[in-house]
Simulated assay, not measured.
Amino acid sequence: MKHNIALAVFAAVLGASTIGASAADFAQTSTAQTLPQTGGKEIYNAVCSACHMPGGQGATGAGAYPALAGNEFVDSADSVIAWVLNGHKAMPPLGGVMDDAQVADVVNYVRHDLGNSFEGDTTAEDVAAVR
C-alpha cells in the first residue's frame, strides 16, 4: 500500500513539474521493482528536484521544501539516508521504490553537488545498514 501511495505522489508531483520529467519516467513494469533512473543526478532530477528545485535551493508555496544546497543537515549521510528511505513530514518514503545503490547515489549527489562538498562517500552497504 505504501508503495502505491508513493508512486501516486510521484506521478502527481511530476505532473506539476516544469523540469521536463513526466509520469512516464516512473512507469513500472511487473518485473521492475525500483525506479528506472540510475546515478545520483538522474534520480535527483527525476524525483527530488520537483520539490527541492533543480539547484537544491528549496521552495515555498503549497508547502515548505527545504534547501539542500548549503544545508549543514546533509553533512550527516545517515540522516539523509534515513529521510530518503523513510520520508519525513511531507516527503514521501522512497525506500520502497529505490534499491540501496540508488539511495546511495542520490545521497552522494546531494552531499557532493548542489554547492555541497561534504566528505565521505555513501555505499549501498551503508544504506542497507540503515534500512
Rank of each mutant, 00 (worst) to 15 (best):
H52L: 00
M98W: 04
G56W: 05
S49M: 06
L94N: 04
N71L: 04
C51T: 09
V74A: 02
A90H: 12
L35G: 08
T60N: 13
L94I: 06
L85M: 10
S76V: 06
F73M: 15
N86Y: 07
I81Q: 01
M98N: 04
G58I: 01
F73S: 13
A77Y: 01
G40C: 07
C48T: 04
S76C: 10
P36G: 09
G95S: 10
G95N: 06
A67L: 13
W83G: 06
G56S: 05
M91L: 11
E72N: 14
E42G: 05
V80H: 00
K41N: 10
D100I: 01
E42K: 11
P66W: 04
V97S: 10
A77M: 04
A101C: 07
T38Y: 07
H88K: 13
G63F: 12
A64L: 15
S76M: 10
H88D: 09
S79F: 03
A62G: 14
D75Y: 06
Y65L: 07
L68P: 01
G63C: 07
L94Y: 06
W83A: 14
H52S: 08
G56F: 01
K41S: 09
V80D: 10
A77I: 09
E72V: 14
A77H: 03
A101Q: 15
Q57W: 05
L94V: 09
Q33R: 08
L94F: 11
P92S: 11
D78L: 00
I43Q: 01
N86K: 12
N86I: 01
G61A: 12
T34E: 11
H52T: 03
N71A: 12
G58W: 00
T38W: 08
T38F: 08
G39M: 02
C48W: 05
Q37V: 04
G39K: 06
C51S: 07
G56L: 00
T34G: 02
V74N: 11
N86Q: 07
I81A: 05
P93Y: 00
Y65S: 02
G55V: 01
A67M: 11
A82E: 15
H88A: 13
L94R: 01
H88W: 12
G40L: 04
